[in-house]
Amino acid sequence: MQRYILIRLIQSVFTLIGVSIIVFSLARLSGNPLDVLLPDEADDETFERISELWGLNDPWYIQYFTFVKNASRGEFGPSFKWQGRTAMELVFLHLPATLQLAGFSILVSVVLAVPIGVMSAVKKGTLLDTVGKLIALLGQSLPSFWLAIVMIWIFAVKLGWFPTSGRGGFDHMILPGIALGWFSVASFMRLTRSSMLNVLDSEYIKLARIKGLPEWKVIWKHGLKNAAIPPLTVFGAIVVGQMTGSVTIETVFAWPGIGLLALQAVNARDYQVIQAVTMFISVLFIGMNLLIDILYAYIDPRVRFT
């Protein structure tokens, strides 16, 4: 077990190094950041001085090491679009909004996907199962940004039930939450269904039935509990998927999270903020995967030896 954890840990570090190289070089590919940052009337001397100060004259590998050193402390430098704030500050400032939205949309997808998934496994081959399949197919084919706009049109503009955009009370959260969660409903539901089908075939479910337990207890307690492992493993991927998917949804709903921050930073060529956001999400993703792999290896010992 320790060996497995160690190997996965080393792999994660390598992944992290790879990600940092890409993030670092992308910002450098766009040329000298000072061309954008300094006003046009700045003379060559100022240019030189600031280049020296920021280490822009150093060879690229020294610049890369400085970047890694600072990044590991969460320092990505000051934002130039949002004056007076550092890039990391901005990420943390926008994080609560994104977490709130992601949390709600995960709730939406779990509440929708788990019961439908379980029931379509139990009633395999019935109308309910077919409708479930239809929902899954639709979930994977509807573009989320389009769904968001259509929902705004119908529920906010025509019916006036919910506000069209912005962050506020609970009613602000419903439309973006559904638009964001819709996509993961499909994958979550399919996984729950296939995992539940496997479990329902097992001996201990037969035993539970023979023992005379009521059917709902067999399914929801004994069945779902055991069927929950595979869906849980994709849970991490879904959580991070929500955070990246939030770029589109947050743009459509003007939701002040890190997705919107990232888009604004890209449009303003604010590379410090872009680097901070990208590294932050990647680290979250890598960490989440590591955690889930270790948890999985703990639950299912076969994983450790492959």
Binding site: V19, T244, V277
Partner: peptide
């Protein structure tokens, strides 16, 4: 590395 990069965000940066 490529699987853990945020897809859409990276695309936005590359296009920028």
């Amino acid at each position: 590395v490529f699987l853990s990069l945020p897809l859409i965000l990276m695309a936005l940066v590359i296009v920028a």
